[in-house]
Every structure is written in C-alpha cells, then in structure tokens.
Amino acid sequence: MKGLVDLVGRAVPSFHRRRGRPRSLPLADAVTLVLFVLRNNATQQLTGELWGVSQATVARLCRTLTPVITAVLDQATRPARRIRRGTLVPVDGTLTPSWAWKNTSGMNSGKHRRTGHNIQLAADLRGRLLAVGRPLPGARHDSTAYRESGLAGAIRTGIPVADLGYLGTDCRIPHRKPRHRPLTDAEQDANRHHARLRSPVERAVSHLKTWKILSTPYRGPLDRFGTALAAVAALEIYRSRGPF
C-alpha cells in the first residue's frame, strides 16, 4: 500500500497543498478511499460517511485518482507484462454485470441472461493476469469481442489458447466434434491437454472478480466503467506480480 501511495504521490505532487485550503483527506487516505470503492463497489454516500467527507468529495477523488493509479501501475508493471514470442497465453471472456440501462442497446447477454459488459482477458500459465481488453456490450460474442477489445493486439507476440467460442480467430481452440462421428481417442486426449492449458485464465478471472465493482452490478455511469476496469486490472497485475 505504501508503495502505491508513493507512486501516486510522485505522479500528482500538487495533491500536497502548501497554501490555501487543505485537502479533505491526506493522500494515503484518499488512495485507500478509491481502493475501497473499487474493491467493494460501495456507494459514494456510504464511503463519504465512513471517511467523514461529502459525497461530492468522494466523487472528485475517484474521478481524479483512478486514472492516476492506472497510469502509475501500468508503468511499474510494464516489464512483467511483456510476452515472449511463441509463449502460450490462455484467453477467456467474462461478463461483468451492470444495472439495466434502458437507453443503452446491446448490454443484455443472452448467454448469461443479464445486462453487463463483455470483458476479454489474458493470463500467463501461472494464472497471473497479463492484459484486459476494452469493455464491450454484453451481447457481443467472445470471438468478436476478442478482436474489437484490442486484446488480440496486446498479446500478438504470444500464442493465444481459448475455447470453442473463439472459432474464427487466431486462437488455438480444442477439436470440434465432427457431425458424423465421435472424437477419436487422440482428439479427446488433445482436448484434455488443451483444457489444462486454459485453466490458468479461469483462475485469473476469479481473482479479478474479487473486486466487487466487477462481480456485482456496476452502478456508475457506463462511460466511466472503462476507467474503473483499467484501474482494477492494473491493481490486480500489481498485486499478483509485485513492484518492479
């Protein structure tokens, strides 16, 4: 935590005012407040009561510090996110729920039967998060979301490994059952090996969704969800890999 506060403090030295009205919270408390909101998907009013500040102050701190946290952690973890050419990279998609927005089309996922965003992510073979694509409407199919989210470009030096939902992409997928015969023993063995290669990304999804802003319905403006997702992804990479 102290390391993160130091990184943010160097990025926004103006946060420590020497003149004029002092800040409502010191930087360490302000960073903790932002992390609390992301971890618990807490309302700004409740967070303000816990920290003894107004809801407007909570909104301002989240709006100001969330992109800063993302930027400093992206810089700090850049060496760890480099993918050697030819490395196997498990890929998967997941739905992060949100409230039903009547004026926004395409958010309802028929597969999951709820509204939300389709999130594409990649992990290493130890289950540590490598990259997360841009959020897309929940109705988007995984194969389309993989290309449109930018994840394919982010891991282009690796060999992506995915399930049958990524048919038609550059991902390695398991054998499909032919129409007129069952899978051979060799094909079944290959599919079992393929499933073992994919299992780390499922662990990465589970770790990412311990941040409740991604696992419980997102209540903020939809145009700010990408900022929250980027911050959580950066924090999860930093947590699993440590400072560099």
Rank of each mutant, 00 (worst) to 15 (best):
I69C: 07
R241N: 09
G242S: 05
T70H: 13
K2P: 03
P178S: 13
A42H: 06
I69H: 05
Y238N: 02
F225C: 11
P221C: 05
P200H: 09
F244P: 14
G116C: 01
S143T: 13
F36G: 04
L95H: 05
R198D: 02
Y218Q: 10
I119V: 15
A152E: 04
I173H: 03
F15M: 04
H16N: 11
P217G: 05
R181G: 09
Y218V: 03
L73K: 04
A42I: 13
H207P: 00
H141C: 07
H117E: 14
A131D: 13
P90G: 08
T32F: 10
P97A: 13
T169L: 13
V91D: 05
T87W: 08
H194R: 04
P22T: 03
S105G: 09
H194A: 00
I213M: 13
L183N: 00
L151Y: 15
S14C: 03
S206K: 08
P26W: 14
I213Q: 12
T115F: 12
T157R: 12
V205K: 10
G116I: 09
R147H: 08
K212D: 14
C171V: 04
R128C: 14
V5Y: 09
G116S: 06
L129Q: 13
E202C: 00
P221W: 03
R176C: 01
R196H: 02
R128I: 10
Q75Y: 06
L121N: 08
Q44M: 12
N191T: 01
A145R: 15
L33I: 07
S206H: 11
V31I: 11
G20M: 02
M107Q: 08
T66K: 12
R17L: 14
D74W: 07
A190K: 11
A80R: 11
T43N: 08
L27F: 00
G158L: 09
L167D: 03
L33K: 14
M1E: 06
L208V: 05
L35E: 05
A131G: 03
V161K: 00
A231F: 14
A154N: 03
R63Q: 15
R63D: 15
G86R: 15
L151D: 12
K209N: 01
P137R: 06
R126N: 00
L35I: 10
I213T: 15
F225D: 06
G165P: 14
V68Y: 01
P79G: 10
V132I: 01
T32I: 04
V72M: 04
A162I: 12
V58C: 02
G158S: 01
V5C: 02
D124I: 04
R198V: 04
K102T: 03
L7A: 06
W211Q: 05
P22K: 03
H117F: 09
R128K: 05
A30P: 09
P243E: 13
A139P: 01
G165H: 09
H193K: 08
T47D: 06
R63F: 15
I237R: 03
R176T: 06
L46Q: 07
T216Y: 12
S14F: 11
